[in-house]
Design a protein around this nucleic acid. Structure first.
Lengths: 253, 253
DNA sequence: CCAACCTAACTGTGATCACAGATCACGACA
DNA sequence: TGTCGTGATCTGTGATCACAGTTAGGTTGG
């Protein structure tokens, strides 16, 4: 199975720890709330990150005990994490009760793509009309980062994946609809493995080219507050990425 | 807390047990696969049913031990069920780590309604173009059942809720997109508590009236294969229900 | 009479153990 | 040589226990 995970690599505190608690007397105002993250939640986050980054290949089987050992925790938190991820389709429990990363069929991938067009397209429209100037600049920052990663020699795929994700979700969050962002996250979690597994193998040049173009059009539309154009640009981005994945093969059935 | 649940009331076998295994020699062709449902899955289904039926009020706190005792199982399967339901927002774990049914704010309800319009509207369009004649007749059957429940004296709210759910999901399944149905189920799970809690208190006449009308228009559109009309009818249904909920109050903040 | 404390019951979380089912490899029989 | 039975090993599932944190209720001190 080979889970390439250190026991909680990276800073465990991703939550805003130093959140200001308004005025307090003495030094009490300076201490932040302790991190009250459950072990199960940390394991969930760890597995989720591995999934969207494409580090876990579709069809790969997971063993609760192995994951638990790799992460240095008991089996219990892993069970909870797997339950959650299986609940929203990021993992899959076979009738044999074995746990694995779902393999996407061609039909399933196309369905997912259509849903992404509908939902993320709606989010783009919404964001175009409601985004603040700061939010648009934030998106522009990620677009620049993506361009740098794509045009580097050789292309920096890891940075590109990260910038692409940040850009898209900055856009979706600008729509101001938390449940919508949640839904899109679920879609990405399902599509993540093939999407980024592919980008990892590929130089990413092709995708980079059309993606850079689509991102530029998206940003221009946002600045013009042009909702239909924003939707069209995002749809182009999704469609070109999907076409590339399909042509690259790697989908079952 | 008062969980009004019998230990697994109703038939546990909702899965197609007698699925034919094609030709087999002797009597082996007649035996079906045994039901291999996990306790955790059964508890999940039980809680899910309580939620969509509005039997668990928003804000109500759940205790793992109490639920476990009420269902006659250990705490373990309940933990798994709550993990899953909390993962897709059907339940909520407070920072105190207490578990409760989420209370929907007015803003949250409106966001949910907008998402329903986008997603279920898309499903209706899709179903209008791809539904088979049998599927349309199936929907018609539920529409008739809904009409009977709504026009009965007094209105049979329980049957109405069930027929309404069956009708909608028969429509969504006719679109032939499993992930789409899954997404809509999640939306209903979130909106279910207020939606049906309200219908339980209310005679349901008002809602019944406009709903019957919308359902009839929907069915006519399906028979004409008129996708935009189907979408419009469904949107009317959702909008009128939402307006009724909002006017009835019961939403936080 | 009100506030503060303090205890007791209860909460979810995590670990550990027990168990049935699945999987795979090896070996025996046809 | 091919196939079936058999064993060990590993799987997820469920139960039980231990523990820290919260909450509610009663009591004490002001």
């Amino acid at each position: 199975m080979a889970v390439p995970v250190q026991p909680f690599a990276g800073p465990a505190e991703d939550a805003p720890v130093g959140r200001a608690l308004a005025r307090r007397s003495g030094a009490l105002g300076e201490i932040g709330a302790l991190s009250r993250e459950t072990l199960g939640e940390r394991v969930t986050g760890e597995l989720r990150a591995l999934l969207v980054a494409g580090r876990l290949a579709p069809g790969e089987k997971l063993s609760l005990r192995r994951v638990a050992e790799a992460l240095g925790v008991s089996m219990m938190p892993v069970r909870e994490a797997v339950s959650r991820l299986a609940a929203d389709g990021a993992l899959e429990v076979l009738p044999n009760r074995a746990v694995r990363v779902p393999v996407l069929t061609l039909a399933g991938f196309r369905e997912l793509t259509r849903l992404r067009l509908v939902i993320e397209g709606f989010a783009a429209e919404e964001a175009a009309t409601t985004a603040s100037a700061e939010q648009i600049e934030r998106i522009a920052g990620f677009e620049a980062a993506f361009g740098r990663a794509a045009n580097a020699e050789p292309p920096d795929t890891a940075a590109g994946v990260a910038a692409n994700r940040d850009l898209h979700f900055a856009l979706y969050e600008a729509a101001g609809m938390p449940s919508l962002v949640e839904m899109i996250e679920r879609l990405w979690l399902k599509a993540g493995p093939i999407l980024n597994l592919d980008m990892r193998h590929e130089p990413g040049r092709l995708r980079g080219g059309s993606a850079v173009q689509a991102h530029a059009a998206l940003l221009a539309a946002l600045r013009r507050r042009d909702a239909p154009a924003a939707r069209a640009a995002l749809e182009n981005d999704i469609r070109s990425a999907a076409a590339h994945i399909e042509s690259a093969g790697g989908l079952a059935e």
